[in-house]
């Protein structure tokens, strides 16, 4: 009966057969997979170069089965710019967390987006610094407790959390920017669609593309993986509304 069985679910070719270092309940694994699936389905793996950030996903080059660069903290968009300008025929993506992209790398991402660099940024926003152990991020919510705001984020003191997708959407340069989440199967399906769309647009040499993915950090949020998914639904979604923020044909907003 062997010929009647067929594989309906497998590891994408764009991911390596290795165990990741991510904590239980962290959604990096899901996001990695969605990117890998998109590369597979679009047949891009063999001409793709990723750029890894500094943060929890610093080692993501060990998990992807494509060429990779390891950037200094926040500079992935600058590396991607340099690379893509010399190799417009290749597919380039940066994979960055909120500390990397929205704090130390804010200048690099804004200018890359504004130049309309033809690469894709996967921006993983879990509202906290993971790798260094739970410090306040530019996207940490009001009142959210972290090790560097032990009494909760005080807006008077450090300002409001930054909505990066909306911020970048204000730029006049055409781009594709969408915020998605991966805290439920339905959201994961939508996230996959957005990520694939971004790579499609890049493959067409259309515009800068960024998908912001709301993510979890049970370890540093100090709650269970299950509760983390609820926390995303209840808190992150309230402040960071999902949806397409900018389309390439939209122009100035």
């Amino acid at each position: 009966m062997e010929e009647q069985s067929k594989t309906i679910f497998d590891r994408p070719e764009s991911l390596r057969d290795v165990v990741t270092h991510y904590c239980p309940g962290c959604t990096h694994g899901i996001i990695h997979r969605l990117v890998a699936e998109a590369l597979d389905e679009l047949g891009l793996r063999e001409r793709t170069c990723g750029v890894a950030p500094v943060g929890c996903s610093v080692l993501c080059y060990n998990y992807y089965n494509c060429d990779f660069l390891e950037a200094p903290h926040g500079r992935a968009p600058a590396l991607a710019t340099g690379f893509k300008r010399l190799r417009p025929d290749m597919i380039v993506f940066t994979y960055q967390g909120d500390g990397d992209l929205a704090s130390i790398g804010m200048a690099e991402i804004i200018h890359a987006a504004n130049r309309g660099e033809k690469f894709t940024t996967i921006f993983v926003n879990n509202a906290i610094y993971g790798m260094t152990g739970g410090q306040m991020a530019p996207t940490t919510l009001e009142g959210q407790i972290t090790s560097t705001c032990p009494n909760g984020r005080n807006l008077e003191d450090v300002g409001h959390p930054i909505r990066v997708s909306e911020l970048l959407a204000t730029l006049a340069t055409p781009s594709y920017i969408e915020r998605v989440s991966v805290h439920s199967p339905m959201h994961i399906i939508k996230a996959k669609r957005a990520i694939k769309k971004a790579f499609e647009l890049q493959a067409e040499n259309k515009c800068f593309t960024m998908i912001e993915v709301l993510s979890t950090c049970p370890t540093n949020w100090g709650i269970t993986p299950g509760d983390s998914l609820d926390w995303v639904e209840k808190n992150l979604l309230a402040y960071y509304p999902l949806g397409v923020k900018k389309r390439p044909d939209q122009g100035d907003k």
């Binding site: 200094p72 500079r75 590396l79 340099g82 690379f83 300008r85 200048a107």
Partner: peptide, 19 residues
């Protein structure tokens, strides 16, 4: 390409050299 800062430029060079 004129970058936004020497920090960015150094890293553009980094990415470009990787090709």
């Amino acid at each position: 390409l004129q970058g936004e800062s020497e920090i960015a430029v150094g890293n553009m060079v980094f990415g470009a050299a990787a090709t």
